[in-house]
Design a protein around this nucleic acid. Sequence first.
DNA 1: CGACTATACGGAGAGTGTCTCCGGTTAGCA
DNA 2: TGCTAACCGGAGACACTCTCCGTATAGTCG
Lengths: 204, 204
Amino acid sequence: MASTTPAVIASEETAKPRRADAQRNYDKLLAAAREIFREHGAQASLDDIAKRAGVGPGTLYRHFPTRDDLIDAVMREWSEDVDSDSDEVIAAGLDAQETLRTWFGKFVENIGVYRGAAAKVMSAMDDESSPIYRKCQVLVGANDKVLTHLAGRGELRDGVDSREVMRLVSGIATVADQSHLSVDESTPMLDIVIQGILRDPSAP
Amino acid sequence: MASTTPAVIASEETAKPRRADAQRNYDKLLAAAREIFREHGAQASLDDIAKRAGVGPGTLYRHFPTRDDLIDAVMREWSEDVDSDSDEVIAAGLDAQETLRTWFGKFVENIGVYRGAAAKVMSAMDDESSPIYRKCQVLVGANDKVLTHLAGRGELRDGVDSREVMRLVSGIATVADQSHLSVDESTPMLDIVIQGILRDPSAP
DNA sequence: CGACTATACGGAGAGTGTCTCCGGTTAGCA
DNA sequence: TGCTAACCGGAGACACTCTCCGTATAGTCG
């Protein structure tokens, strides 16, 4: 298999020194955003988030100039969860098919926590100017780890590119999100992809 | 293969009698919508469309109560094009792989004409209350024709459901749309899906 | 052909959401 | 305690959606 993606990722958690009140507001905003994004999806009103955090809109926009900056912050630990999922899946020692089922399933499930997030991830994956781009690189890297692991055992078809697979799976996650499909209902699509990238067992 | 989808579609082109001026404005709005959707995508300002058509916003909203109603009207002939594509592809007598490449390629290309339309189609596919739902049924039906044709020749794996395939391909179209991929750049993803649904040539 | 009415027009404006600007406030420090 | 840089927050400009209703007119009938 071949990956276009660099190893990834020096997480730039530059927790720059802030005044105590600023830090407090930052945290309140993040907590409020998590709640409201979970309730109303990623396109919820930002002023509502400011309101729930008990700060003015100006404060929100100073900390997070754009909606994507806020989403980025909300997604931070979440993308690390996904990354550690990939390690667990590899360590579990399942066969190729089960490995992918588990990995893709977790991915779709995780990405679906915030409604609309899947679409954001999908479109940020190829947009370096997006604040979410870095997070996507973590996801791409995690997926690459899993596929490289399988490729090392000769279980993938020739020419499978992990970035394409990532696009495909995030597309499925978006479909599942928008059509309100459960994880189970998205497995038929995932199975097709799995069939499409796994080397056929009957081949040498 | 199995399809959940009914045969489809008694197109409800009830061209109800309208006053001449109303019909004129309807046509002007449609033409303006086509232009502006092509330029700015499916989330363009509706007031802009009314402005370009030279009518007031009230007129636009009387003819098309919601954005989706307008998109639906714009998509009308377009979905018929897609449908006739499916017939052509079947008639062309290509092998299974080329048939699907051609069909999926045309689908993704067509659906990408209006930016943002792919996402609309994707989410309307499972939402009966959407005005676009009917159009999606045309697409689902067209896809079903192609897959049934191949299934009849025993070229598909067991258990392939055409609706799942349609979801998958519209997901790819959405990825291609949002990431500004050309049709060529989306073929790797399509090829994975094709591998995933085609019976392996080495099998009996 | 002139009058009448159902139908359609269109713009003012209410409602909602985004984002900015700047006068006032406060944390942190000497 | 007093100073200042950092920060707050809300008023309001701007953009978009959608509605209401007074006005205009197409089509019809006497």
